[in-house]
Design a protein around this nucleic acid. Structure first.
Lengths: 345, 345
DNA sequence: TCATGAATCCGTAACGTTTCGGTTTTGCAA
DNA sequence: TTGCAAAACCGAAACGTTACGGATTCATGA
C-alpha cells in the first residue's frame, strides 16, 4: 500500500542507494533531487522508521523511568525533556514505577527489550543493579535528581545541601532558633542531602541539631501529615519547620490545618517545589524551587551528546562510551512568600 | 554480538521457522521445546522487536497526545494507562502539546511517522482534522475527556452535566441561591457541558441563570484567579461558587486568599478534581472527583480490543475497523469537605 | 506392517531500509 | 579534444524476523 524507497527509485529511474543517500542528506545532482522530491510528493512516500531502525540498530526512542508521573516535579521535567527530545526526532517512552524498586527493574528491562537508544532515570533503587543491562550494552544512561554510587554515567542534580541551608538561614535571620525539619527517607539521596544541609546550617549558626525536632517521612502526603503532627505534639517550643519535598509540604499544610494552627503565625514554614501550590496557600508559602527547565535541558543535552557519538552497530574497535560520567549540579532558588514570621518584629 | 533466531536454530539443529513458531506460541515437540529453551538460556537470546515490527507492521507502541502532562488529571490517567498497556507489552509514547493546536497536530504526525499502533488523545483541536492520518490508515484512536464531532472513533467521557448539576444542587440544599460559576472556554467540550449542567440545575430549581454570575476562564490557574476576583467584585450578594476544573479551582482559592475572603464562610465553594489539593485547603474543599481509574481502564480496554482485531498488514479484503466508535460515559463522584456553608444553620 | 490424517517441521521469500564496493559521470585543467 | 580526480550513482547483500506451502514425522487403527 504505502510507497517504499523502491517505488520512488523505480519512478525516478534512479538507484536504491541514490534515493537512500538523498534521504539521509547525501549529495545528489540537482535534477535528480527535483525528480526524487517530486516522486516523494506524488507517492506520499515517508521512510519506514522501523525498517531503518532494523538496519541502523537505533530506534530513535529513549526510555524514561520515573517514580511517579503524578508528581509535579517529575511531570514538569518530563514535559520539558519530551519537548527537546522530540525536536531532535526522539520519542519518549515513559514508564512510571510508582516508587517501587521491583517495578523499576521491570520497567528498565522492558525498555531494554524495546531497544530504546538511551535511558533517563530518576532512580528508586539504591544500587545500580537495575541499570546493568544498559551499562553492559553501552547504551547511555542519564540519572536525574539522585546519584547512584558505583554507577558510571551522566547525572543531573541540584544542590540539596545549599537548598536546605538557605531555608534554615532564612529562619535564623528572622529570629527562629527552634527549627524543625520534615525530611525524606534517609536511604534516598535527596533525603540524605537535604537533612545534612539542614544540620550543617544549624551547626554553622552555633545551634546543636536535636533529634526531637526532626521527623522523617516517606515523601508522601500522608507522611507529611503524620510528621507535622508528631513535631507539633512533641515540641511546643518549636516556631518553624522546613519540609523537604512537595508531597510532604502539602501534607504538612494539611496537618497544620487539621490541628487548627495558623501557618506563618504560630508556626513558620518553608516548603519545597511547586510554586502553584505555594501561591494557593494562605498565607503564601515560602518554598525552595528547583530549576526544572535547567534540569531538563541538561539531562536532554547530556543524552543527545552521548547518542551523537556512540551507538552505531559496528563501532570500529573502540568501546563507545569510555568517556566517564559527568555530573551537573544546579542551584535551587527561593520563592519568598509570607509563611515565615519575623520573631523580632 | 547479540544472538539471533538463526543462532539458536543452528545450535538446536532445528529450522528457522520452528524456532519462530515456538517464540510465537506455536506447537513444538516437547524435546525440541527443551532444546530451544536451553539454547535461548545459553546464548541469552531475546527477540529483536524491531525486526519483528518490520515484518508484522506493528510496533507494539501506542502514542498519546495530551494537553498538559503537568496536570494532575492528565498525569494520573497516564499513569494508569501506562500500567495497563505495558502489562500487555505496549510501550506508551507520550507527547505533551501544551494545550496548543499546532503542537497537537505536530505530535500526532510525529507519532504517525513513528508508526505507533494506535493513538490515545485528549484533543485540543476542535475538529478532528489532526487525526486524519490515523483515521485514513485505519489505525485505532481513543479519545479521552472530550468528544469530537464528526470523528468516528472510541471515546471515554465523564458525565459533565450531572457533575455540575450535583454541585449546584448541594449549594441549593444548603440554602444558596446566588450561585456563581467559574467555567472553562465554551469551545472546549467539557467547558460547554459543565456550564450547561450548571444552568440546567438552576433552571430546574426555578432559578434563572444570570450572566453576571458566570465567569469564563481558560482552565489555567491565572484564569481562575482572575475569574474569582471578577465574580467577587461584580456580585456582592453571591454566596457560592462552583469551579469547573482543577487549575481554576486552585486559582479561585488563590484569588479568595488574595482578596482576604474566607472560603466556607463568606463564600462557599465546590471545586474540581485533585482530592489532595482539596484536603490541603482550609477548610477542606468540597470537590467533584473524576473516576480516573475507570477512565484509564476503559480507554486502555477499548484500545486493546481494537488492536486485537485489526491492524495486521494484509487484512484479507475487509476494512478492519468498520465497527463504529463506541462512547463510554462515566459518572463522577462528590468528595465532601467543609467549604459549603449551610445558610440555614 | 501399512496406510492415513494430523501434527510438526523446514526452506525461502519477503518486510523496507542502509551500506559496501565498484562503476559511471561530471567538471575542469591541460 | 583528452585525461583524470572527484563526485555521483548503482546493485546486491545484509539487518532479524514472520509466513507460505510443501515435506516430514508421528500416532493410530486396520
Amino acid at each position: 500500500m504505502a510507497a517504499t524507497i523502491k517505488d520512488i527509485a523505480k519512478k525516478t529511474g534512479l538507484g536504491l542507494a541514490t534515493v537512500s543517500s538523498y534521504l539521509n542528506g547525501g549529495n545528489v545532482r540537482e535534477k535528480n533531487r527535483i525528480l526524487i522530491e517530486a516522486a516523494i510528493q506524488e507517492l506520499h512516500f515517508e521512510v519506514n522508521e522501523v525498517a531503518r531502525g532494523l538496519k541502523t540498530n537505533r530506534t530513535k526512542t529513549i526510555g524514561v523511568v520515573i517514580p511517579e508521573l503524578n508528581n509535579v516535579f517529575c511531570a514538569e521535567i518530563m514535559t520539558e525533556i519530551e519537548d527537546i527530545m522530540r525536536n531532535h526526532g526522539y520519542a519518549l517512552v515513559i514508564c512510571d514505577c510508582r516508587t517501587d524498586g521491583i517495578r523499576e527493574c521491570d520497567a528498565v528491562e522492558f525498555l531494554y527489550r524495546k531497544r530504546v537508544d538511551g535511558l533517563i532515570n530518576m532512580p528508586v533503587n539504591l544500587d545500580g543493579r537495575h541499570l546493568r543491562c544498559f551499562l553492559d550494552a553501552g547504551r547511555p544512561i542519564v540519572l536525574i535528581d539522585r546519584r547512584l554510587e558505583g554507577v558510571d554515567c551522566d547525572c543531573v542534580l541540584v544542590d540539596n545541601l545549599e537548598a536546605a541551608g538557605q531555608a534554615v538561614r532564612i529562619f535564623l535571620r528572622n529570629g527562629h532558633t527552634r527549627i524543625g525539619m520534615i525530611g525524606g527517607p534517609t536511604d534516598v539521596f535527596t533525603g540524605q542531602e537535604r537533612l545534612t544541609g539542614y544540620r550543617n546550617a544549624l551547626i554553622e549558626a552555633g545551634i546543636e541539631p536535636e533529634d526531637r525536632l526532626i521527623a522523617l517521612g516517606d515523601y508522601t502526603i500522608r507522611g507529611g501529615v503524620r510528621c507535622m503532627k508528631e513535631l507539633l505534639a512533641g515540641n511546643p517550643d518549636m516556631t518553624a519547620v522546613f519540609v523537604a519535598n512537595y508531597e510532604m509540604t502539602m501534607g504538612a499544610v494539611i496537618g497544620m490545618n487539621e490541628m487548627g494552627i495558623r501557618m506563618g503565625e504560630e508556626i513558620s514554614m518553608i516548603g519545597f517545589d511547586n510554586a502553584e501550590f505555594a501561591r494557593a496557600c494562605n498565607p503564601k508559602l515560602t518554598i525552595v524551587s528547583q530549576p526544572i527547565r535547567e534540569i531538563a535541558w541538561n539531562a536532554a543535552e547530556l543524552m543527545l551528546e552521548r547518542l551523537r557519538k556512540c551507538g552505531r552497530r559496528n563501532e570500529p574497535g573502540k568501546e563507545p562510551s569510555v568517556c566517564p560520567g559527568r555530573v551537573v549540579k544546579l542551584a535551587t532558588g527561593m520563592l519568598e512568600g509570607d509563611s515565615v514570621r519575623n520573631l523580632a518584629g
